[in-house]
């Protein structure tokens, strides 16, 4: 009977999650372009990805940099803003809601709006730089700056949401604990690192994992704003997979190998987080 009860959910999982996953790994061992016959080539796809072609490693590096920057700045800013907005007042409630609004906008729209603002000739940002008499920047056309532009957009868009989670966890700290810390004559920084941060660590840890995973899967903002360019300066894993699978001769086998590697990386990262960071998390 219990199996019957979970059957509908399990069926969905099987059809839409486990089967595609297994098929992904399976396809990665073939040369296959959707039309041709599948030809088993063993680990050749992986060898090409990691040792023969240079573009995959570049995409991997870009993704790692992007993810690290997004995770770091999102969590840092979410905590700082939450500490700032913690006190309940009219203006804080208004600010909190305003900061949440970007999260409601579709990523594609956000990316377009920011692309216009980043525009070298007619963009708002260069106009602002000109106003304070600074030389304009090339933003998305600058191969070392472009990835940071995308980081800014991602952090700006999702900050309000993560801020909300951190804010809720801050408010769940019993006020007596904070008062006890005050009576213990605790300096501000020490209070934050020894009391507040450990108390909200389960939520921060959850953010760490979810933001890492979502950053590794970044696609829409990159596709709209730079499409991986200039050169391959902002090429990330998913745009890479997308390009090979659906644009460059439908090299599905090769793209599957890249997808399998992404899957592997996320698994390893998650295990790593639970092993090492998880020890420092305090659960009530």
């Amino acid at each position: 009977m219990p199996y019957v009860m979970v059957a509908p959910a399990m069926t969905f999982l099987l059809v839409f999650t486990f089967y595609p996953l297994a098929n992904l790994v399976y396809l990665s061992f073939f040369r296959y372009n959707l039309i041709s016959d599948k030809v088993f080539i063993g680990l050749t796809n992986y060898r090409n990805l990691l040792f023969v072609k240079k573009d995959f490693i570049q995409a991997l590096k870009n993704t790692a940099l992007y993810s690290f920057a997004v995770v770091f700045f999102t969590i840092l800013l979410a905590i700082l803003f939450a500490l700032w907005l913690e006190k309940d007042s009219k203006i804080n409630r208004f600010l909190q809601k305003s900061m949440f609004t970007p999260y409601l906008i579709a990523m594609v729209s956000t990316a377009y709006i920011w692309s216009w603002m980043f525009d070298v000739d007619s963009g708002l940002l260069n106009a602002a730089l000109a106003f304070v008499k600074l030389s304009p920047l090339r933003w998305l056309n600058d191969s070392s700056l472009a990835i940071w532009c995308i980081v800014i957009v991602s952090v700006w868009k999702s900050l309000g949401y993560y801020l909300l989670i951190v804010l809720a966890s801050l408010k769940s700290i019993p006020s007596e604990i904070i008062e006890a810390a005050e009576l213990d004559n605790t300096p501000w920084l020490r209070k934050f690192f020894r009391i507040i941060l450990p108390m909200i660590s389960p939520q921060i840890f959850f953010l760490l994992i979810t933001i890492t995973i979502s950053s590794f899967k970044v696609f829409d903002s990159v596709r709209v704003m730079t499409n991986g360019g200039p050169g391959n300066a902002t090429d990330v894993l998913v745009t890479y997979i997308h390009r090979y699978a659906f644009q460059m001769n439908m090299r599905v086998g090769y793209a599957s190998a890249a997808g399998s590697l992404l899957l592997g990386i996320l698994m390893i990262l998650t295990v790593f987080y639970f092993r090492f960071a998880g020890r420092r998390v305090h659960y009530q």
């Binding site: 019993p174 007596e176 604990i177 006890a180 009391i195 450990p198 108390m199 305090h282």
Partner: peptide, 9 residues
Amino acid sequence: FQSYAIYPM
């Protein structure tokens, strides 16, 4: 304190 308010971590 009534709830003791000892630091749980």
